[in-house]
Design a binder for these strands. Structure first.
Lengths: 206, 206
DNA sequence: TTAAAAATCACCCAATTCAGGGAGAAAAAA
DNA sequence: TTTTTTCTCCCTGAATTGGGTGATTTTTAA
């Protein structure tokens, strides 16, 4: 079997080094390069195509989700594994929806990392047990559970929409939006909109 | 000269590995261990005291700022270097106020990392040029400049205070708070409180 | 299939915020 | 010292939010 060529996109030098070292002596896997921005990643892909890209979600400028989509559209043979921190599980779904084949937390160990790479290189999906569990039940369990609708409303509130605008965007009545809003305040234990926004951004539960 | 013993606290295995490797062949520096939580860090310190701790600000449970304070109070001989991502500059000040001797971004390279460790181990302070610049001028310069008072008001708004509460806390009139609030909306180009909070958190300009 | 949860909408009322204006005193910069 | 900026305060009125209560329908889970 051929060697799996792995490329890393992460804006943290230390993380790149960490991964590179973890993969160093792994049979069947070669490290073929790294980039710290979406631009340099795309530039690299013009010269060489890896089998798997380990891609951080938080990149300066273009975020990982858009980059993932872009890469998958242009180079369907390149598989992407999302990388992120524990408290950003919210983005996992979006990453998967945009063509990622797997998702790893940055605290993953060597076995999990190599296992994920090998599996994804074969065209399969990989999901760490931790992530899979949370994806199933939708949240970090410590955080109050928000319903689908409540999340949508919250998202629009955070974007600065008034109840009126939210109602129009979601095709529901203003009073309904108001009810969701009140439930959000209770569930997130917020005193007002400001606190609501701060809490939801802090916890990244969008 | 003695070897500088370095300990790492970070909840991301990959970061720990990355740092460990960067320090591996560095003369004068030895890696003496790592922890992924505040608890296990404190437990380690009972058995052995490093010279320098590289400490991530984002830890599960107890955050790095509190841990830093705790460590410095109990073990004044141990110096702490804060670690974080670029978009969390807001916490740098707090970290330094709580006894950290330096601050590094996670995308720091080998030279910067070792330089910081050596300098801090001697009892000096270290600040990467990037961080120092931004600390000086308080913001990322792209952002509209807020006055001292406006920042105070904004901070309280983000914490969920009403104008009334803010007025009492700052010993000024409600109308004054209101004026500041309006100016904040204009300066940050926000439509309402929600947008104001999101923008200020996004840009970390507290 | 039945029970529980979520989504929908309505009403009232108080509190707060938003938008517009003006205006004087204090502090900082020129 | 003069000018500019910041900080202070007030007014009016519209819009939005916050708190409480209650009810119907739809969806989901047991």
């Amino acid at each position: 079997m051929n060697m799996v060529k792995v490329f890393i996109v992460d804006d943290h030098y230390m993380v790149i080094e960490g991964i590179r070292v973890l993969l160093q002596h792994e049979p069947g896997i070669t490290f073929c390069g790294a980039a710290s921005s979406a631009e340099s990643c795309m530039a690299f892909l013009l010269t060489e195509l890896p089998d798997v890209i380990l891609m951080d979600i938080n990149l300066p400028g273009v975020n990982g989700i858009e980059l993932c989509q872009l890469v998958r559209l242009k180079y369907p043979s390149v598989f992407v594994i999302g990388l992120s921190t524990f408290n950003q599980l919210s983005y996992i779904r979006k990453m998967m929806e945009n063509g990622a084949s797997g998702y790893l937390l940055k605290n993953a160990g060597r076995e999990e990392l190599t296992g994920a790479i090998i599996k994804v290189a074969r065209g399969q999906e990989f999901m760490s047990s931790e992530v899979a569990l949370i994806l199933k039940h939708g949240n970090t369990s410590l955080l109050p559970l928000l319903t689908r609708r409540e999340k949508e409303v919250l998202e629009l509130i955070v974007e600065g929409c008034t109840n009126n605008e939210i109602a129009r965007k979601l095709f529901i009545g203003i009073s309904t939006v108001d009810t969701h809003r009140k439930n959000l305040l209770v569930k997130l234990n917020a005193r007002n909109t400001a606190a609501l926004v701060r809490i939801s951004l802090d916890q990244k539960l969008l």
